[in-house]
Structure formats: structure tokens, C-alpha cells
Design a binder for these strands. Structure first.
Lengths: 136, 136
DNA sequence: TAATAGTCTATTGTTTAAGTAGACTTATTT
DNA sequence: AAATAAGTCTACTTAAACAATAGACTATTA
């Protein structure tokens, strides 16, 4: 299961995708429409900015907005940016890999099964982009 | 990512699958071979017993063992037993379903994407059984 | 009846999620 | 150019879930 943080990030990115090209969007607007705790959302958006997905503008008329077209960012990229692993186990994760203490990956049946599910999941998440998150 | 508890449960079940039909296996033996904190493992095995997957015997010569043949339990069933959701979001989970606060599932793109990944994952995990977790 | 091994209760530590307070920046208005 | 309003940024606190540990208790076998 994705963490709340990751879920909120995806929701927020979807909202911003729908407003792409229309200038900065207020944090409070995103929070209200997507039912996200505003202070938690602040830290998430800030992190996305530091990862060069969002840009922000301060002061009156400010807010957050996508740097690139929504079609340029895949869901797999978005999930990884906010620290959400996609694989079900560390030993089959690409970005959060950790070796198992107890098993030989070449012969471990669990490893094999989880590798297959990871690949199936990635196949989907690497094709979908933020544009697909726009409502309607 | 599956919780530690779920990971440990799968490892332990895999170990017991390899010893199926050979009588009770000590908690300590499983813990040692699978590098699982023994006290944590105790609670996990007890839960699996209460869910009618394992049986136990107390006293000397005691231990835990699988009730049914390893081929009878799928990985999807095993994961769910110890409380591990398979879907990436609550709104696409079969056993841990929760409605989103902010979205209409019929039109939500995120819901659609996550449904697809859930189906792809389930297709694999419902075919694999505990027998596949046996090493070698 | 002594030793073995599972069962139960309680407690501690760690991470994640959420909420609070306030400082800092920028843009507008006058 | 100064005041103010609108917004982001930083640091700290609280609450809940998850992971791990410790020890007493109960049942079984030899």
C-alpha cells in the first residue's frame, strides 16, 4: 500500500495537471479540493519542487505549478519521487533495494514471485502519466 | 511494500512448506534459518494458527506445521491472512476497501490506473502457492 | 517431576502521519 | 517607497501505527 504522503502527492499532481498552463495554484485550493491536510501538503509540494517537478511563486498571485507538461511525468516516476517504493519487497526493489538476510536470490521462490509482480506493476505505471490523473 | 510482519509470515510459511509432512517445527528453528526476531515470529505464527493455516503442538517434540498441503494456499491468501493489503490504494482494495474522500471512482484516473495494477498483481499472486516458496 | 516448547500479557522503541506556530518573501496598493 | 496582504518556508509537537523485547504462564513428554 502506498503511504498517505504518496497518495496525497499523486492527488495533488493530478490536480495541478488539470490546471497546467494556467499559472500558479494555491496550496489551499489543492488542499480543499483534494481533501488533504494543508500543512502536510505544504511539505509534500516543497519536496516535489526540490525534485524539479514543480515550481512555485511567492507572494500575491503565487502558488505551485507543474514545470513540464503532465504527459512528461509517469506515475512510476511520481511515486518514486516522494519516496514510495513500488516493489512489494526490498529485495526486488529497483530504487530501494536491500538484500535479504536469509535467502539466495537465485533460488528464492518468494523473490521470483515478487519480481514478476513488480514487473507487471511497472509495465502499467511506466506507461501512465500525470495527464491520466485529470478528472473527467 | 509489504509490512515486516507480512514478509516474515511468508518466509516462515515457505520454511514450513519445505518441511510439510515431517512433523512439528520449532519456532526457534524457523527464526534462526529465516533470520526473524523470535518473539515477533511467535505472534505471527499464533495468528496463522488462529486463521487455520497452521497447527501447533506444545511440549517436547512440539512446534508448528502446515495443516494442508502447501499447494492449497496461494500467496494472495497468505498475504491477506496476516493483514497485508495487496492493492496500492484503499479505494482499489478488495479486502481493505475504503472510499476516497475526494474522488468519484467512475471518473478518477488514479483509481483506474491502480485498479489495473491490482489486477495484474493478483493474477500472479493467486496462481503461486506456498509450494513455490520452497528453496532449491 | 524436570525439562521442553508453545501461549499470553505488558512494555519499549521507532517510524509515519498530522497538526501548530511563526518567520520569511514577493507583489500590490497607496 | 512604505505598508500590507498573500503566499511559501522552517522548526517543533503530538498522536498513532508498527516493530521488537521481556518475562510469566501453561501444556506435553520422558
Amino acid at each position: 500500500m502506498l503511504s498517505k504522503k504518496t497518495q496525497y502527492a499523486l492527488k495533488a499532481l493530478g490536480y495541478l495537471a488539470g490546471k497546467y498552463g494556467q499559472g500558479p495554484v494555491l496550496i489551499s485550493e489543492i488542499a480543499k479540493n483534494k481533501k488533504i491536510p494543508i500543512k502536510f501538503l505544504e511539505t509534500i509540494l516543497l519536496e516535489l519542487k526540490q525534485n524539479n517537478v514543480l515550481e512555485s511563486k511567492k507572494g500575491k498571485g503565487g502558488g505551485y505549478y507543474l514545470i513540464e507538461s503532465p504527459k512528461k511525468t509517469t506515475l512510476a516516476q511520481a511515486i518514486r519521487l516522494v519516496g514510495g517504493p513500488i516493489a512489494l519487497l526490498p529485495c526486488v526493489s529497483i530504487n530501494f533495494y536491500e538484500k535479504c538476510k536469509d535467502c539466495n536470490e537465485a533460488t528464492c521462490g518468494l523473490n521470483k514471485a515478487m519480481l514478476q509482480t513488480r514487473d507487471a506493476t511497472l509495465k502499467i505505471l511506466e506507461k501512465k502519466t500525470l495527464a491520466e490523473l485529470i478528472d473527467g
